[in-house]
Structure formats: structure tokens, C-alpha cells
Simulated scan of single mutants.
Amino acid sequence: MTANPTSDARIREGYAARATEYTELFGEIAQMDAVDREWIGRWADGVEGRILDAGCGPGHWTAFLAERGNEVEGIDLVPDFVATASARFPHVSYRVASLAESGTEPGSLGGILAWYSLIHAAPEELPALLAAARLALRDGGALLLGFFDGADGKPFAHAVTTAHFWSIGGMSGHLERAGFAVIDSEARVQEGRRPHASISAVAV
């Protein structure tokens, strides 16, 4: 998800070409790290109000939250993902949209989950996306980001299209400038995977 139509098209086309493969590899909650399931579940338990799963992909995290009792909707740039998610989890709401243009009433959300959905945003695009998240959230609303830990803004050749690393400090700075206060963060390195980081923040 980006604020740039050209970038949006690149991301949409890249994921559409690999939507089936991506869903097979990463589309089930059981395939997700247990630490992430615990972290996201605990975050959602503290959210008051509707949650937007921004960049929901094949819909597994949205369904995970819905099954825990959260009011949640998934959005994604990729129509293939939205169609797949809707077929797999017909009890959950999904639609084609981006964080930059979510169609959400300002201040109406209690939480936004952006789990690895901002990784393809170029450094100059990230502030607009975080500003869009802040606009959609009510005061005190919660944001949870997952991303690749590394040198701030450094690009790398992701399997789908170019992605970027961020450090916890660098991403925290962007969040604070967008109107958030960082509440918690975590990072880890696991063999065979790129370093992971996530940040929990609230709209202030």
C-alpha cells in the first residue's frame, strides 16, 4: 500500500501474478509464527472499536481477529486476494482498497493492523501512509505494524517487488511525526528469515 498510483500498480500486478502461490505459502494462520499470533491477538484484545486489516492479503489475519470476536474488515490493493479471502472466509468482510484511500470515515476506527503491508512503500511515501492511518483512527486508536528490521529505508529485492527495511527507532520517528505515541515494540532474528520487527502505537 502506498500513496503513489504508480507504486500501487506495481504492487498490485506483482502480487496478482503470485496470488495463488502466496496464499499456499502464507495464507493459513497455522503457518504464522506462534509469537506473532500471540502478539497480534493480545493487541486486538486491547482495541476498542472496529479494526481495519490494511493489506490483508489472502485474509487469514482478518479471519483470525473476527474469530476472536473483533469487529474487523480486510482491505487489499489486489482484487485476486480479496476474491480469495472472501471465498475462504465468507463470514468476514473484505474489499479492494488501500490504506491511502480506504474509504473510511475519519476518526471512525479503533485499530489498524498493517502487518507487513507497508514494506513496499518507498521512504518518501511512508509519511503519507502513516498520516492516512492517523486520520482514520479515533484519538487513542491503536496501530500495529509488522516490517523487516534493518537500515532505515534500505531497499532490497523482495520476491514480489522492491521492499524496504526499517529500524524500530527509524519507524518510531515516522510514527511520532504522524501523530502516534509508541507503546511497545519487539524484534527477533530467526534462521532462514529476514530480521523481523513490529511496533504497537496509539493515536494521540
Score class of each variant (00 low, 15 high):
residue 170 G to S: 13
residue 76 D to P: 02
residue 188 R to N: 02
residue 153 G to L: 07
residue 164 H to L: 01
residue 91 H to C: 00
residue 75 I to D: 04
residue 121 A to S: 10
residue 101 E to Q: 14
residue 125 E to H: 13
residue 150 G to E: 05
residue 133 A to F: 11
residue 90 P to C: 06
residue 102 S to N: 11
residue 109 L to F: 10
residue 92 V to F: 06
residue 182 V to Y: 10
residue 107 G to F: 06
residue 141 G to P: 08
residue 177 R to Y: 07
residue 186 E to K: 12
residue 154 K to L: 13
residue 91 H to D: 12
residue 162 T to S: 06
residue 90 P to S: 11
residue 157 A to D: 15
residue 76 D to C: 01
residue 165 F to H: 12
residue 171 M to A: 12
residue 89 F to V: 08
residue 104 T to A: 14
residue 158 H to V: 00
residue 176 E to R: 15
residue 181 A to I: 11
residue 127 P to A: 10
residue 107 G to R: 06
residue 186 E to P: 00
residue 88 R to V: 13
residue 165 F to L: 04
residue 116 Y to C: 01
residue 105 E to F: 02
residue 87 A to D: 13
residue 137 L to T: 09
residue 155 P to M: 05
residue 152 D to S: 02
residue 156 F to A: 03
residue 178 A to G: 12
residue 130 L to A: 07
residue 99 L to F: 05
residue 85 A to T: 10
residue 81 F to L: 06
residue 188 R to Y: 09
residue 166 W to T: 01
residue 88 R to D: 14
residue 141 G to V: 12
residue 125 E to T: 03
residue 176 E to V: 15
residue 167 S to H: 08
residue 92 V to W: 06
residue 87 A to N: 08
residue 137 L to M: 07
residue 193 R to L: 11
residue 92 V to H: 08
residue 94 Y to G: 07
residue 190 Q to L: 15
residue 121 A to K: 11
residue 108 S to Y: 01
residue 117 S to F: 03
residue 193 R to I: 00
residue 95 R to H: 13
residue 136 A to Q: 14
residue 173 G to T: 14
residue 75 I to P: 01
residue 90 P to V: 09
residue 143 L to C: 07
residue 97 A to C: 07
residue 163 A to C: 03
residue 118 L to C: 03
residue 170 G to T: 04
residue 137 L to A: 08
residue 123 P to Y: 06
residue 190 Q to G: 01
residue 194 R to Q: 12
residue 72 V to H: 00
residue 142 A to Y: 03
residue 155 P to D: 11
residue 131 A to W: 00
residue 179 G to K: 05
residue 142 A to L: 12
residue 138 R to G: 12
residue 81 F to E: 01
residue 160 V to I: 15
residue 103 G to C: 10
residue 122 A to Y: 04
